[in-house]
Each structure stands twice: as C-alpha cells, then as structure tokens.
C-alpha cells in the first residue's frame, strides 16, 4: 500500500467528489422517503460508507439494520470511533459474507469504552477477513474535514511518530514554513454518508444536540448523505435559529424520521445507552468467536433484523418498558433541558 507510486483514493478522488456535486440537483426539495428506499437508492456494492456518531453516541443504527436486510458486498467503512453501527455490519458479515461483506476499514477505534470490546472486530481482524487502515480520531476527523473543505489533504500534528502513520497513507514532509516535520493526510470523500441527528426538516437541514461528533464534516465530504432523525420538524421551526443548523440541506439527499434511530446507543435529550442490550449482542458474538457456533448470533439477527420489516418492528420487539427506561435515564442527564 505504502509503496504504490500513485496515491490511491478509497472513496472518491477529490476531482470525482467535485464532479459529483457539480452534477447534483441542489434544489431545496422534499427529500423524505422510506429508509428502505434511501438505502436502495444511495448505497451500492463496493461503496466507501462514512459513518457518523462517536462510539455509541448518535450512531446511525437504524440505517445499518436496513443495510443488513438489503445486503451489500465489499464495502469500505470510514469512521473515527465506532460502536453499535459497526457491530451490526461486522456481525452480519460474520454470519453470512455472501449476503453482507466489508472489504476494508479506515478507522481510529472500534470498541465500546465502558461497555468493553467489539468481539466482531477481533473475529474479522484476527482471521484477516478485512483490510485494515488504522488512523487516530483526530486523523479521521481531519480527513473528513479536508473533504468538506474541498482540499486534497490536510496537515496535522497527530501521531506523526510511531506506527499509526506507518499503517496508513500519511505522508510526512518538512513543513515549507517551519522546516519541521508535519503529517499530511489525504481527504476522505465517502460515496455515501450515514448520519443520525436529533431533528431535521424535509429538505435536510439538521439540528444536532450534544456533541457534533464529525457528522457535518462527513456529510459535506460525501457524494450523498442519508440522514435519519429523531424528529422531523417544519422548515420554519428548524430554521428559526439559522446558526443552529449543523448540516445544511445542500449536503443531504434523503431524510427519514426514525425515533430511537441510534438505539441501543444513546442520543442526547432522547435516550441514554441500553447497556444490557449491547451486552447481549456481544455475548452472542463472543460465543461465535470462541466456538464458531453461530446459532445465538443468528437467532438475534433473525428475530430483530431479518424478522422485521423496518426499525419500528425492531423497537416493538424491544418493548415500551425498555424504551422508557432509556428515555428516563437520559432525562436525568439533561436537567437544564438544553
């Protein structure tokens, strides 16, 4: 990889990314559709998919369920720190790589902080079933930012020394102004971004509460963006404070209202983590890692993903009591209601 004379682009090249926007319908039009239609329209085999959120915060879980139902081949997944969204895609590949497969990961971290490791990552990496390209959180965030800025690369001070920069396409040069070494990172332009936000209007103007993560940068760097939102609001309400818009309609292609769309992860003001559900998926996956017996993991997917038509079917199976519990936990986090 490092010895390739020409820099290669794992998503769109900067020129391709530019052309994708030139040719795009940028009109302010109603972009609401079903999640099934959005996934079918905007995601293709072999795509580089930029994934929003951070660990288990506001990850586009509903969209990953729909992707698993649909089935895709040879995806590249690009993200800084991933949790449940990546878990679902990884586990789907463990169960049936002919139906769903990941070719490559460009990442800084795949695990769950206080909730432990992602056994899917160990399974896929230790068997060499996916290509790896390690970066840092600042690296991946800066790569999306470079894409969003329309620049082919971005200089950073990230892990310039050590093995991270040797695991990826970082180029270290002497800064032309200070003469000191500086790391240059190639922009990341995914074919499609999948993002979950707190609220959006039908045109795709998005409001984010809590951490912005890197969602705006990923959306603006990508050729297409699928947005799921907790609440679909009127254009007038969403734009009452124009500076509150985190992602403008120009950077969005599909808008789908999916309450609890990041569950069992968390979404500021709506619900906190459901750590028991996360632990249950990990227990079933660990079992397959240890014994190669996929029955329990398959049973989870058969019940919660393949056994339902859409994410509301998943939520029905979770049940009102669990959803209210997650909502109540989050209410206690937001005493000031901002």
């Amino acid at each position: 990889m490092k010895d390739t004379p020409e820099m290669f682009w794992t998503g769109l090249s900067p020129d391709e990314a530019r052309k994708a926007l030139v040719n795009k319908d940028k009109s302010m039009r109603d972009k609401t559709m079903s999640l099934k239609e959005a996934v079918d329209t905007f995601i293709h085999d072999g795509d580089n998919v930029g994934i929003g959120g951070f660990v288990d915060i506001r990850q586009p879980v509903a969209t990953t369920h729909e992707m698993v139902r649909h089935g895709f081949k040879d995806l590249t997944l690009s993200f800084q720190s991933g949790g449940m969204a990546i878990d679902y895609l990884g586990a789907a590949m463990m169960l049936n790589p002919d139906h769903f497969s990941i070719k490559r990961l460009e990442l800084a971290y795949w695990a769950h902080e206080a909730f432990g490791l992602a056994p899917m990552f160990r399974y896929l990496a230790e068997r060499s079933l996916i290509e790896l390209e390690d970066w840092s959180n600042a690296n991946m965030s800066a790569r999306f930012k470079a894409g969003a800025m329309g620049l082919p690369f971005i200089p950073t001070r990230g892990p310039i020394a050590g093995d991270v920069a040797k695991s990826n396409r970082t180029k270290i040069i002497d800064c032309p102004f200070t003469n000191r070494p500086i790391a240059l990172l190639p922009a990341c332009h995914p074919d499609v971004a999948i993002i979950h936000v707190n609220a959006a209007d039908k045109y795709g103007n998005c409001i984010v509460r809590g951490s912005d993560c890197t969602c705006a940068e990923i959306s603006m760097a990508s050729a297409h963006t699928i947005v799921t939102c907790e609440q679909l609001l009127s254009h007038e309400t969403i734009t009452s404070l124009p500076k509150d818009i985190a992602i403008p309609f120009l950077g969005v292609d599909a808008v789908i209202e999916v309450p609890y769309g990041a569950y069992p992860g968390a979404c500021r003001r709506s619900y906190y983590y459901s750590k028991e559900h996360i632990a249950d998926l990990h227990r079933r996956t660990s079992l397959m890692c240890k014994t190669e017996n996929k029955d329990e993991l398959q049973a989870y997917f058969d019940e919660y993903i393949f056994g339902v038509d859409d994410f509301s079917g998943f939520l029905e199976k979770i049940g009102v009591a669990e959803l209210l519990k997650a909502k109540k936990l989050e209410a206690a986090n937001c005493e000031r209601l901002v």
Binding site: F54, E113, S211, C213, T214, A216, Y272, E330, N333
Partner: peptide, 30 residues
C-alpha cells in the same frame, strides 16, 4: 449529573461551557 461512561456521553455536555465536535477538541489540543 454523574460519571460519564463515554467521552461523548450526554453527561459531558450538560453544564459544559463550550461543545462542538472532535475536530474542535483536537484543534484546541494541537
């Protein structure tokens, strides 16, 4: 509001003076 379980946790947002995203945190550090 309590101990966060994640560095992106909602509990880190409540009462914070300033919150953007990862780029802003790392840029400040840089």
């Amino acid at each position: 509001v309590g101990l966060p379980v994640s560095v992106g946790d909602s509990k880190t947002f409540t009462s914070a003076s300033f919150v953007k995203g990862l780029n802003s945190a790392f840029e400040m550090t840089q």
